[in-house]
Design a protein around this nucleic acid. Structure first.
Length: 131
DNA sequence: CGCTTGACCGGAA
DNA sequence: ATTCCGGCCAAGC
């Protein structure tokens, strides 16, 4: 008889894990919201299908509340572009300063700048999902 | 307390 | 190639 919705503790845990993973992205590399989401375990109170649909969005929500020290600028959308919002200009400047290049359509080539992800040992030691 | 908005993404039209 | 729509939660007003 589960109440609908995630427990507050589950939401907090999810956000903490998002920040943990994002901190592993090295300078000069970027990762889509969905890639970050794929490493995170599903909270118990949500259906697998719903989690798959919404986890990337929750990563975005977590980034909106990013604590200091997290390289939020290295998270972009699945199209390889910076998601439009206030602050997008700053994000682009920070990435450019790290050596990331944008093409004529403001797109980043993930083949070159895409982060390969944490190694499996690291994921295991933090209780995250293996690729 | 109710309604709107939002740093997403994949599939459909 | 675009645009639209569904999916469900958290914050903000």
């Amino acid at each position: 008889m589960n109440e609908p919705g995630l427990a507050p503790a589950e939401t907090t845990a999810f956000y903490v894990q998002v920040w943990l993973v994002v901190r592993q992205i090295p300078p000069g590399k970027v990762a889509p919201y969905g890639q970050i989401a794929a490493y995170l375990p599903k909270p118990a109170s949500i259906a697998p299908k719903d989690f798959a649909s919404f986890r990337a969005r929750w990563v975005g929500q977590a980034m909106a509340e990013c604590p200091p020290g997290v390289p939020w600028q290295r998270v972009i959308n699945a199209q390889g572009k910076i998601s439009p919002r206030r602050g997008a200009i700053t994000q682009r400047r920070l990435l450019t300063a790290e050596g990331v290049k944008f093409d004529e359509n403001d797109k980043i080539d993930l083949k070159i700048y895409g982060w390969s992800g944490p190694d499996e040992e690291w994921l295991r030691s933090h209780g995250l999902v293996l690729p």
